[in-house]
Amino acid sequence: MKTNVGWVVLVGLCLTGALGACSAGDDDDTPEGDKFELRLTGRDSAGYEQVLLGVSRIEVMAQGKPLVFQLGKEARAMELTREDHAYLLGNFYLPKAAEEAEVIVHFDDVGAFKEAGSSGLINARSGAILFKSKRVELEKRKHAVIELHLKDSLFQARSARVLLPSTFIVH
């Protein structure tokens, strides 16, 4: 098991109170920088009646430093065959001087799917999504949206379907 050093530093800071509350907070806790949303939506869900995944952790880095990420309540459980909805995973604040954000979305390790006549488990341990977004792109609509293409992301393995994300990042 490996751990992102930046994340450990962030957690340590949170625990010692140096950054105050690291969760969604009031105005006093609003970090400096420009606020951007991170969203996730499903695509190519034909054949599935339901695909349920949750997020376990999100890391956002800029200029080599971890940023505060305010996790949204929708990150807990997402039904990704709803292609008309982009779930709000949360918000991050990009420092004014930062030109790029690096994002890692870790899914909770077990999910579920339902298709005609049966349901089954999703093994999402391998399912981290890693990408970089440029400030100029983020500023277009104040968000980055991950499109997870379900047809090309779930592969049968022994006892479960493995999540190997095939994604587009749009802004």
């Binding site: 341990r125 391998s126 890693l130 990408f131 994300p165 994604t167 802004h171």
Partner: peptide
């Protein structure tokens, strides 16, 4: 871990977005 020794992700980028795909 017991299921996967390593995951390998390929990423391509263009002027307004990016796309990723991985293998185990």
């Amino acid at each position: 871990d017991t299921d996967v020794s390593f995951t390998n992700v390929f990423s391509v980028g263009w002027d307004s977005g990016s796309s990723q795909s991985g293998v185990n």
